[in-house]
Simulated assay, not measured.
Amino acid sequence: MGIATRCSLRGWLRAPGSLSKRVAALGQRFEVQVLRQEVAPLRQLERRALGLPRSGCTVVREVLLRVDGRPLVWARSALHAVALKGPWKAVKGLGSRPLGHLLYEDPRIQRSELQPRRLARQGHTRRQMLKQWQAATGAEASPQMLWSRNSVFTRRGAQLRVMELFVPELANYKPGSLRRRKPVR
């Protein structure tokens, strides 16, 4: 089912612009539930994407994006702590506001190409997501929740990496549309 899930989520994995706005369009009430925002170790893929050395403090923010109470996206953003004193200082005060509002308000912020990626079923990121999902929702995350998209935002030379992981049910909706997709037969 892995390849089928990716194909059906392709629109979401490749959709440009603000994911928060696209997800919010699916219902009446959109909310960002902050699961964690703290200094944490940077993972190898994040370090590579941000071009950072092994050492140094990293700020990680993990959230659930919910529509009408339903969690649809688990997201993780990471940046070097030095960037919080400079170009990305607004991240500290985001609270439950979407990161997308910050990323798309400033036309000087550049985004890398979106990189779809299948998570390892037993990888650290997936285990972290499963634990947080259970604690936040009281239910287990779908075993098919494996496809994410990754990108790096650059502002005045400082970089912020964002990873967004989708529930498989989003495949039933076109990004930015309330219309359900026609079932594949």
Rank of each mutant, 00 (worst) to 15 (best):
residue 149 R to P: 01
residue 139 A to M: 11
residue 17 G to T: 06
residue 79 L to F: 12
residue 69 G to C: 11
residue 58 T to D: 02
residue 19 L to G: 03
residue 95 G to T: 12
residue 171 A to C: 10
residue 9 L to P: 12
residue 52 L to Q: 14
residue 59 V to R: 14
residue 74 W to G: 11
residue 164 E to N: 04
residue 122 Q to F: 00
residue 171 A to I: 02
residue 149 R to N: 00
residue 176 G to E: 08
residue 16 P to V: 00
residue 17 G to K: 03
residue 137 T to F: 06
residue 163 M to N: 06
residue 96 S to L: 03
residue 9 L to E: 09
residue 90 A to K: 08
residue 25 A to W: 02
residue 168 P to T: 09
residue 2 G to R: 12
residue 102 L to Y: 07
residue 74 W to N: 07
residue 178 L to R: 15
residue 128 Q to G: 04
residue 6 R to W: 03
residue 179 R to Y: 06
residue 33 Q to A: 13
residue 45 L to V: 10
residue 140 E to I: 01
residue 132 Q to C: 09
residue 75 A to L: 07
residue 31 E to P: 04
residue 110 Q to D: 07
residue 90 A to E: 15
residue 22 R to S: 12
residue 44 Q to W: 08
residue 98 P to L: 09
residue 46 E to K: 02
residue 96 S to W: 00
residue 136 A to F: 02
residue 127 R to A: 15
residue 68 D to K: 05
residue 77 S to I: 08
residue 85 K to R: 15
residue 138 G to N: 11
residue 60 V to Q: 13
residue 159 Q to T: 01
residue 167 V to Q: 11
residue 8 S to H: 14
residue 43 R to C: 06
residue 151 S to D: 08
residue 21 K to Q: 14
residue 77 S to D: 14
residue 182 K to I: 08
residue 141 A to P: 14
residue 130 L to Q: 15
residue 65 L to P: 08
residue 19 L to W: 01
residue 129 M to H: 01
residue 26 L to T: 12
residue 163 M to R: 04
residue 78 A to Q: 01
residue 185 R to Q: 13
residue 104 Y to H: 14
residue 84 L to S: 15
residue 62 E to Y: 03
residue 106 D to S: 07
residue 115 Q to C: 08
residue 134 Q to G: 06
residue 182 K to Y: 03
residue 12 W to K: 03
residue 179 R to G: 11
residue 90 A to C: 07
residue 183 P to I: 08
residue 164 E to P: 09
residue 64 L to Y: 03
residue 151 S to T: 01
residue 160 L to H: 06
residue 85 K to F: 04
residue 10 R to Q: 11
residue 152 V to R: 04
residue 135 A to D: 12
residue 184 V to E: 14
